[in-house]
Amino acid sequence: MKLTINGITHQVEAEPDTPLLWVLRDELGMTGTKYGCGIAQCGACSVMVDDIVTRACVTPIESLENRRITTIEGIENDPVGKRVVAAWVKHQVPQCGYCQSGQVMAATALLKETPHPGDDEIAAAMVNLCRCGTYNAISAAIHDLAGDERTGQ
């Protein structure tokens, strides 16, 4: 089966019901996407599929042929993603960092859907968990980006 990840097409051997997360980490060695809870509750495994945030641990690859998958490894090729990473660095968001590739995915998908989200929209979209409690820093970074005129490009 063929999967297009960060603009590159990969031939993968896994069974059609295999979760995307296993294919990314085990078959393709792209370990930036993390395994957290395995049941779509924490968000550590978030990736984007056609710019929509998706939990790789509960996404069978069967449904992904001819779709555009973006992982943390390719996020800076995306202009919005690049600015999100810059804001994350500016606000020194990560502590242990484990959940942050997922947080960056959620933020990028949000800003791609709506470039200047309000507080309610941020609350509705940013539901990934962080055990270090970096929520204040995440919020500061997102609000910074939400007010940024260039975000919509």
């Binding site: 019901d17 509750q41 998706t54 939990r55 449904s63 539901v127």
Partner: peptide, 18 residues
């Protein structure tokens, strides 16, 4: 959206037979 949609689909239509 936060707890169920990633498995059952944001449109409620599930994911194939899985």
């Amino acid at each position: 959206l936060a707890k169920c949609s990633f498995c059952h689909g944001a449109d409620g239509r599930g994911q194939g037979q899985w």
